[in-house]
Nucleic acid binder design. Structure first.
Length: 540
RNA sequence: GACUCGAUAGCUCAGCUGGUAGAGCAAUACACUUUUAAUGUAUGGGUCCUGGGUUCGAGCCCCAGUCGGGUCACCA
């Protein structure tokens, strides 16, 4: 028996076993995955006909050969005016975006990764002999907006002073079977027929990226932000690491997890809500600084600022405290803003936000005192709940003291912190993984960075006293019994790691999607995530 | 989850007190050898989101649902 056959048999057995297993109920294929909608529009039929016609003419609409591209459109536009002699023989490739046919001459514009450039096609240049088929049929009739082509020729400037490619050779690289929305911009810069239905834009992001200028830029900036942070961390010698996404105990944050099941181990697993406890284990293991750009998953509501999967940067640095982290953060944010937007001041939602360091620091209880008049220090849970009610802040019996304080701050205070502000020194009940404040046992060494009334970062002097940590987890257990379904689970292995000793450490998490929103001026998280979560499209 | 707005041609949108659907772009055909929201002439293109109901008759009115946007709630 050959190896392949054996493997097939094994697989058959596996599949049989798999589908016989009563536990695997979630694998039933939903109906929206079953059928392909094959109804074609008039334009789709015509394009398929062109495709066949091209094949009959001996033109492969999907050729395999490498394309000898030697320049990008943007480079041509920038350099041609200065060094025209360099552009007597170019080859560019890209997608046809517009086509203007004027008898024996035509213009088209193509889009490559750098931008758009116009090309001029003259029939008798492209078809020097008797046979004008390539121009009259292939170019004029069978080439559509959306197709990929390569163009060889020289660069020149048209009468209307647009830098263009004078084409001597045109080759089809890939035929498009669906018509592209044609977005036009007039001389006033006004957009016409913009592809702007958010549902279509997010579901078909590829189309959004093709036809809507500026979308790509947002995502390029997103990567720039990540890269700038990597630079800052790597310069300091911190190590980029990866930690489990599938966790048996979803720890490190207060949130509802997604649940899944591992068949071989026959056990539940959770998609991580945070990687905090794993990164701290690495500090125990002897790394001085570790960081991870982590996809986290929270099974909660979705809105303009929440996607079920989102990206957090978490960083942990040994021998530092939260005060150091504040300075580190404000200088890094200033650097990121300057690098990605060219200025420390960014515009967001009609507001000017200045990211230049340093940022104001306000203890949370002071913030509450300022904006509500109530001093919550030394107040017990019942008293604080009473105050909350008097402020029209909703509370429920399952909320502990920490959550009530959080609710008061969230409702009455955070909106005022438009300019970057470190809110510091949270009450101990709100921060089960954070070290007690060096000057006040009722508080913790924690800050959250608020910008435009939204939390962007959260940081601690990390709790490294294993006995204190155990007690804090046990307090969370109490909250769980009260009905708080977000209270943290006890992670015994994490406690064990702390018992081996963790150096004093400061750690921070930054909501990357929200940071990118801020730096790109986007008010919806869906604008900064390539493929935001959506319900499946209906079929038929 | 609640409220609210929306879904009509490939795209963007009109569509009157209910009377068998329109425009621009895109497409097709013809003309045009430096245009640029190219232009001119002609043409084709529709499950009006789905399912019920009211009505002689529904894109429009009523009910239920689907998907999406916004606001709020939940939530970092």
């Amino acid at each position: 028996m050959g190896l392949g056959a054996k493997r097939t048999l094994t697989r058959l057995f596996f599949i049989k076993f798999f589908f016989n297993s009563a536990k695997v109920t979630h694998l039933k294929v939903p109906s929206y995955l079953c059928k392909m909608n094959t109804k074609l529009s008039e334009q789709e039929i015509l394009r398929r006909e062109s495709l066949e016609a091209l094949r009959k003419e001996g033109i492969n609409p999907y050729p395999a050969e490498e394309v000898p591209v030697n320049v990008l459109s943007e480079t041509i536009k920038q350099e041609f005016p200065i060094k025209p002699e360099k552009y007597t023989s170019v080859c560019v490739a890209g997608r046809v975006m517009t086509k203007r046919i004027m008898g024996k001459a035509s213009f088209l514009s193509i889009k490559d990764s750098s931008g758009r450039i116009q090309a001029y096609i003259n029939r008798d240049v492209v078809c020097p002999g008797e046979d004008k088929t390539l121009y009259n049929v292939v170019f004029k009739k069978q080439l559509d907006i959306g197709d990929f082509v390569s163009l060889k020729g020289h660069v020149f400037t048209t009468k209307t002073e647009e830098i263009s490619i004078h084409v001597s050779e045109l080759k089809l690289l890939s035929k498009a079977l669906k018509p592209l929305p044609v977005v036009k911009t007039d001389s006033q810069g006004e957009k016409h027929d913009e592809f702007n239905d958010p549902e279509l834009r997010y579901r078909q992001r590829y189309v959004d990226l093709i036809v809507n200028e500026g979308v790509k830029e947002v995502f390029v900036k997103r990567t720039q932000v990540f890269n700038t942070m990597r630079e800052v961390f790597n310069e300091k010698g911190y190590l980029e690491v990866e930690t489990p996404i599938l966790q048996s105990i979803p720890g490190g944050a207060a949130a509802r997890p997604f649940m899944t099941h591992h068949n071989t181990l026959d056990m539940p697993l959770y998609l991580r809500i945070s990687n905090e406890l794993y990164l701290k284990r690495l500090i125990v293991g002897g790394f001085d600084g570790v960081y991870e750009f982590a996809k986290d998953f929270r099974n909660e509501g979705m809105d303009r600022t929440h996607n079920p999967e989102f990206t957090i940067l978490e960083i942990y640095v040994a021998y530092k405290d939260y005060k150091w982290m504040m300075e580190f953060t404000e200088s890094m944010f200033e650097k990121i803003a300057r690098k990605t937007t060219g200025s420390a001041e960014v515009s967001f939602d009609g507001k000017k936000i200045n990211l230049a360091a340093p940022y104001q620091r306000v203890p949370i209880l002071e913030a509450i005192k300022t904006h509500t008049g109530f001093d919550l220090i030394d107040k017990n849970e019942a008293e604080i709940k009473k105050i909350a009610e008097s402020l029209d802040v909703e509370t429920s019996p399952d909320m502990g003291k920490g959550k009530v304080i959080d609710a008061i701050f969230g409702d009455k205070c955070e909106k005022y912190y438009v300019q970057p502000t470190f809110i510091t020194d949270y009450p101990i009940e709100m921060s089960p993984l954070c070290k007690k404040h060096r000057d006040d046992e009722r508080l913790t060494e924690r800050f959250e960075l608020f910008i435009n009334g939204t939390e962007i970062a959260n940081a601690y002097s990390e709790l490294n006293d294993p006995i204190d940590q155990k007690e804090r987890f046990e307090d969370q257990l109490g909250l769980q019994e009260k009905g708080d379904d977000e209270a943290m689970f006890i992670d015994k292995d994490f406690l064990r790691s702390l018992e081996y000793g963790m150096p004093p450490t400061s750690g921070m998490g930054i909501g990357m999607d929200r940071l990118v929103m801020l730096l790109t001026g986007k008010t919806s998280i869906q604008e900064v995530i390539f493929f935001p979560q959506m319900r499946p499209e209906k079929n038929e």
